[in-house]
Nucleic acid binder design. Structure first.
Lengths: 146, 146
DNA sequence: CACGATTAAATCGTGTACGATATATTATAC
DNA sequence: GTATAATATATCGTACACGATTTAATCGTG
């Protein structure tokens, strides 16, 4: 490919990644609205539902987010009453994030979300392709994170 | 797959998309810093280098961004002196975005960016997979945008 | 045990994203 | 022609992202 052609939007990897990420987030929105949470807040809940009581940086390493993003995000979630932040007694540098009852119980409401989204998507996009995409993206992430 | 397992971070399509998008943006950053532009500003330049003198909403439809994002972004780019915004005389609702000389000349500096990134990535990620990823993502975008 | 280095969060400033609304201009219907 | 609908941007408010810096607590070494 000519160097020139590499600058065309269609030939970039970055753009479809950027656009698809935003579009998929928008797909989630009507479903997340019913839980009164945003998309990044949903990701944090996914992490906590799998493993409750994590420190801020443990959440960060799973989601690849720094404390400068997480701290305000977690504070908003605490205001909503879905998590609780407490300083660790053993090591007062650490802040333990724990689900409240409300936060835990949101999981039941969320169970239908992945299925609903995938089925909506699979109408026009074969599941096999979705799986391949996920695998490729996870591979890419692995490369990029080291 | 059990419904429960669908809520695991690893099984989501949304998360690797979100994380990979942010990671790839970070890869661009050192290169874009030399041009003194941000990543979304780079995308706008890609569009204008292909086709100069577009309206705000024409840029928006190519990048899937609304005017509430673009207007401030374009204003910052105008302040930097890389584009010029002018009301159309034919239809005063429209704003024509045009590259300045500085904006045009940034293209030469940018020519090496895609090659440099792809080569860095291809070390651990076969080009064939990158191409497949791009194709799949573009397919997904097509589905999602209608 | 003391003190510099490391670690964990928080804070600050800037720049996106985007839903909702406002404003101004042009098109359309009657 | 004029009221109204449609179109194109802009504005506003909220919520991320993230580089850079700060603050506070713990660790490690002499």
């Amino acid at each position: 490919m000519k160097t020139e052609a590499l600058l065309q939007l269609d030939n970039q990897l970055c753009f479809p990644l950027y656009a698809a990420s935003r579009m998929v987030t928008k797909l989630y929105q009507p479903l997340l609205e019913e839980l009164d949470i945003t998309y990044p807040q949903y990701l944090i809940l996914l992490v906590l539902w799998e493993n409750d009581e994590l420190t801020v940086s443990e959440i960060g390493s799973k989601l690849m987010l720094e404390t400068n993003t997480l701290t305000p995000l977690l504070k908003r979630m605490e205001v909503k009453g879905i998590i609780k932040r407490t300083r660790s007694i053993i090591d007062e540098r650490r802040v333990i994030v724990k689900l409240t009852n409300k936060g835990s119980s949101l999981k039941e409401k969320a169970l239908c979300i992945p299925t609903e989204l995938l089925s909506g998507m699979a109408e026009h996009f074969p599941m096999e392709k979705i799986n391949r995409l996920r695998t490729d993206l996870n591979n890419l992430l692995e490369i990029l994170s080291k």
